[in-house]
Nucleic acid binder design. Structure first.
Length: 742
DNA sequence: ATAGGGTTAG
């Protein structure tokens, strides 16, 4: 994200009345003649309503010019606006404000304290403007989010024929880099070349930074080679440039070059980026070696380095090391460190720990920001817990982050994943300034719930509004097509993605296409498709074909595909389970037994099915046939009643896939106690009428439960949302959003 | 009296 900006022509003097930035209060832009006018000193007593009498100690012994300047410079570095204002009043009282060094120090003090209005007013009071005072003023706008304004002020200086110096260029290169003003940046570059300013390291470094922010790394490399002077900052800029482009090996190569050939030592800044690189490359051993070096050099106690290390370990799945690093930072930990730790917990599926850390963070008085909310909402989605999500949502509103686009996407995703599509839609509709991720998140939500038409509709809206779809957009659309069995539409979209949008398909796109073909019954075509792939087929690509083989009862191909998957993933329990389900459906009990024996031999375990539901802020878990829940007898009573009633409506229990008949228990009895049925039934008993029932399951919903839910939703007139490890099923008045289940 | 580099997310 960068500021909106009008394009400027920096060399022309006539074009100084450019469009104001949107977030900028109007301030009269003086013309050249204004600068020449006699004293118009900005009176702090009038403007700041300061009373000299309230500062008796200062009045008693009036400071001289030098001590005012040094006091102001002290205020600049500490950001102490109140003391700064007192010295402004003193400078006025003593008349030193007429001195240009004092006045410039004042401008700088206001700039550093973030008060651009007073900086500008003080600046306007200067009688004898020079490039230093211009630089002071210009340098303040970027840090206040008004980079475009800095370029406007620069043009005022140009108009006043007050020429730029080295300081001006380093400020402006930084400005152009942050707002991605490529044309202006190049113009300034040319101007700086003419003035031979490049022996100045700061100028060179800011120029490197600018081009690296433009993503023009070729340019950066050439410039870097030819810089007359380099220091550790120059190296860090180049390394960071490659890192941001995700060219981690190049970043590392430069780092090694710096260490071995340059004679310049890397410092905390350099180490921070290098930790981020080893995190990005998943180079666990390298990262740990680096950590040891950082400790040796005393750099691991730097907050930035420490935080980068936290993030790195969490990326390696070493959450314990991340925790340790966080503890070592102690009171040095910044909001970013807290965020990195929370993100680490979420990444490593420790959502409860993430929530606990959030509470500790609040208790410690650390301010939560968009990163915090975004991460913690992801934890709510992963749990998934709608009540926690709603609690975080109210925090987001209180902290005024609800119109933040990233937090918005996380909120949307949270509601969708917690089973409330209506709330997800509400979030989407509230955000008017949509970006591609927000669109993708909503499209993906529709796709997961099986609302293909809505997904396609949004896709068309998105394109009409001029947002370029990304590979994630198509992924969502493919999976929607495949669940709805729309083979041709899916294939057309696949072609369109490549031809019209220039997106190169990756593993997951291929996997979706295999799923699409397979579900449509084109098993051989799916196999041919895999054969013709430009990449080596992975188990993720084979897996959807195995599922299709089961549905279309193609044993031979299923066994072939199963072998392919087991070659790379020998512990994949779903392969054995799918095969034994297939054999069971065909009554091939001998083969079922063989699969079971194989699983035992290889030590592969089937995860027990578990469903859960949130009622009154409490999570209720149910396992198949589990009797531990206190309300179990009521639940079974209700369940039998429901089965009786739904049978009258046409429900026929489907016992085809029951693998082992328990002793003394009928097959029908066995499917009656499936965990999802128990959880839904408990929801019906506990939640007020009309409220949707939201149940989650760790495995796929079985065909019988799916069919039963349709009848139950009609009978009880309830919306039932059932999320399994695969997708969402939204049962409404006897229908399911996913179309026909298989 | 004025300038240059670092970590976290959807």
């Amino acid at each position: 994200m960068f500021e909106e900006r009008p394009q400027r022509i920096l060399t022309s003097r006539k074009n100084s009345n450019t469009t104001e930035c949107i977030d900028e209060p109007k301030m009269g832009m003086p013309s050249t003649s204004d600068f020449r006018e006699p004293y118009n000193v900005y009176d702090p007593n009038r403007c700041l309503e300061l009373d000299m009498l309230s500062m008796p100690s200062l009045v008693a012994s009036l400071p001289d010019r030098v001590s005012i300047i040094s006091a102001l410079s002290n205020c600049s570095s500490t950001g102490n606006l109140d003391v700064g204002r007192m010295y402004h009043a003193l400078a006025f009282k003593t008349g030193y404000i007429g001195n240009k060094f004092v006045a410039t120090s004042l401008v700088d003090m206001y700039v550093k304290c973030g008060n651009m209005e007073h900086a500008r007013k003080t600046f306007e009071g200067l009688s004898d403007l020079d490039i230093v005072s211009f630089n002071s003023l210009i340098s303040g706008y970027p840090s206040n989010g008004l980079s475009g304004r800095a370029l406007d002020i620069f043009m005022e200086a140009q108009s006043a024929e007050i020429g730029p110096n080295e300081y001006t260029f380093s400020i402006l290169f930084t400005v152009c880099g942050t707002i991605l003003a490529v044309e202006e940046g190049k113009q300034l570059h040319a101007q700086a070349v003419k003035m031979e300013y490049f022996s100045n390291i700061a100028v060179g470094n800011s120029l490197l930074t600018m081009y690296s922010k433009f993503g023009m790394m070729d340019e950066v490399e050439i410039l870097f080679e030819n810089l007359p002077n380099r220091n550790h900052i120059s190296w860090t800029v180049v390394i960071t440039g490659f890192y941001k482009q995700e060219r981690f090996e190049m970043a590392l190569k430069q780092f090694n070059c710096m260490r071995h050939n340059s004679g310049i030592e890397p410092n905390e800044y350099t180490f921070t980026v290098i930790f981020a690189c080893s995190s990005g490359m998943k180079e666990r051993n390298y990262g740990m070696t680096l950590h040891a070096q950082a400790i040796k050099n005393g750099m691991a106690s730097d907050v930035f380095v420490g935080t980068a290390i936290i993030d790195m370990y969490s990326g390696f799945g070493e959450i314990v090391y991340a925790e340790k690093m966080f503890k070592e930072l102690g009171s040095l930990a910044s909001d970013v460190s807290w965020n990195a730790l929370i993100a680490g917990y979420v990444r490593n599926e420790k959502c409860e720990e993430a929530m606990e850390t959030l509470h500790k963070m609040i208790m410690n008085g650390v301010t939560c920001d968009q990163f915090t909310y975004s991460n913690i909402l992801k934890a709510c989605s992963a749990l998934p817990s709608l009540t926690m999500g709603e609690q975080i949502h109210s925090r987001v509103i209180k902290a005024n982050y609800k119109s933040n686009i990233q937090v918005g996407s996380s909120l949307l995703e949270m509601y969708a994943k917690c089973g409330s599509l209506v709330d997800a839609e509400h979030i989407f509709n509230q955000i008017k300034c949509r970006d591609v991720v927000l669109w993708n998140t909503m499209i993906k939500a529709y796709s997961q719930y099986g609302y293909l038409k809505k997904a396609i509709f949004l896709f068309n809206n998105m394109v009409e509004e001029g947002t370029m779809p990304t590979s994630a957009t198509f992924l969502a659309l493919f999976s929607a097509c495949s669940h709805s069995g729309l083979l041709e539409e899916g294939q057309e979209l696949f072609q369109s993605m490549i031809v019209d949008y220039g997106i190169i398909p990756e593993e997951n796109h291929y996997s979706c296409m295999v799923d699409l073909l397979g579900r449509a019954g084109q098993l051989e075509k799916a196999r041919e498709f895999i054969k013709g792939l430009p990449i080596k087929p992975t188990s993720a690509i084979w897996r959807p074909l195995l599922a299709s083989c089961r549905y279309h009862r193609n044993f031979k191909l299923a066994e072939f595909v199963a072998r392919r998957i087991l070659e790379t993933d020998p512990d994949d329990a779903t392969v054995y389970i799918t095969l034994s389900n297939m054999y069971a459906e065909a009554g091939r009990w001998g083969d079922v037994e063989k699969q079971r024996a194989l699983m035992e031999l290889k030590g592969v375990k089937k995860e027990p099915g578990c469903s859960w539901i949130e009622v009154n802020n409490k999570l209720h878990k149910f396992y198949s046939g589990d009797m531990r829940h206190p309300k179990m007898s009521k639940i079974y009573e209700k369940l039998r009643e429901l089965v009786r009633q739904t049978k009258n409506m046409g429900y026929v229990p489907d016992t085809n896939f029951v693998l082992h008949q328990g002793v003394g228990v009928s097959k029908e009895e066995q499917i009656l106690c499936h965990s999802e049925k128990l959880a839904v039934c408990f929801g019906l008993l506990s939640l007020p009428p009309g409220r949707p029932i939201r149940v989650f399951k760790n495995l796929r919903v079985c065909a019988d439960c799916h069919s039963a839910m349709k009848y139950i939703s009609r009978l009880t007139n309830r919306d039932i949302v059932l999320k399994d490890n695969y997708r969402f099923h939204h049962f409404k008045r006897g229908c399911c959003s996913c179309g026909d289940y298989w």
